[in-house]
Design a protein around this nucleic acid. Structure first.
Lengths: 136, 136
DNA sequence: GTCGTTGCAAAGCGTTTGCAGCCTA
DNA sequence: TAGGCTGCAAACGCTTTGCAACGAC
């Protein structure tokens, strides 16, 4: 093949112990994880794993459609398995947990200025979840 | 004076050319700006300005309540004047600029689950701005 | 003159990339 | 075996910090 490929995103052609460990960690998680969390957990299976391998695999899994990024404002990127239905997130200011919110507000296209092309949107709700509202 | 203060957040006690330029840039903007954008624009007034000065002033202006942070998912922090009317943001995927979007979609409270208390929300729209839509 | 503020350069920090060796298919 | 994949370390880009000089009040 022609040219340098060292930095290229992997094609997921081989089933390595590292990749398997990363997938297992994400499958076992009950919420989206950050790269560091994934590394720490995956090292319980493959102690020699490096952070670069995590990043490279996240990128490859993302590209293959297996993974999905959760990007909350002011927080680091987290990763969760793809394939969930369209939803948004509710972040509880009391307990810090993040919840999924099904559905979408109406009239999105109307508030976008004329001439602009809307491709995607991301909503975040902040407040207190059911548990924390009860307490207050 | 006791101890080292070099890294401390300024108290905005003096009216310097740099600070004036930064404020003017932010006042003139039609959307939230990133540190680099602010530096580039402010250098038209004070060419010698360094990026550290921008960061220090942003921090100070933020702390004084004059500025407000816009934290878009997956992007670096941007800054806009505090006290604006309620609005959201449109991020152009072609040119990277961010625009204000007046108004708000309908039916926000309805999609939040029962028992949850909604205090605040943050919406982001992604696509192409007027200029970049024309080009395509 | 004081001392808040600035520019420069170096240090951090999380993420990416170059490279040589490893190991799956 | 070939070449996709990995670990290590250096490189990056963005932000912060140390320090001496500057300049607003």
């Amino acid at each position: 093949m022609i040219g340098y490929l060292g930095g290229r995103v992997g094609a997921l052609e081989r089933d390595t112990a590292q990749r398997r460990a990363i997938r297992e960690v994400i499958n076992a998680a009950n919420g989206p994880l950050g790269p560091r969390e994934i590394l720490d957990a995956a090292r319980r299976t493959v102690p020699s794993m490096g952070i670069a391998t995590v990043y490279r695999n996240l990128k490859a899994l993302l590209q293959s459609g297996w993974l999905h990024v959760v990007e909350a404002p002011g927080e680091a990127q987290r990763y969760e398995r793809a394939g969930k239905e369209h939803h948004h997130h509710f972040s509880c200011r009391s307990c810090g947990r993040m919840f999924e919110v099904a559905g979408c507000p109406e009239g999105l296209t109307e508030i976008v200025p004329d001439g602009f092309t809307l491709e995607h949107h991301e909503f975040f709700f902040y407040g207190h979840c059911e548990d924390c509202t009860d307490e207050g």
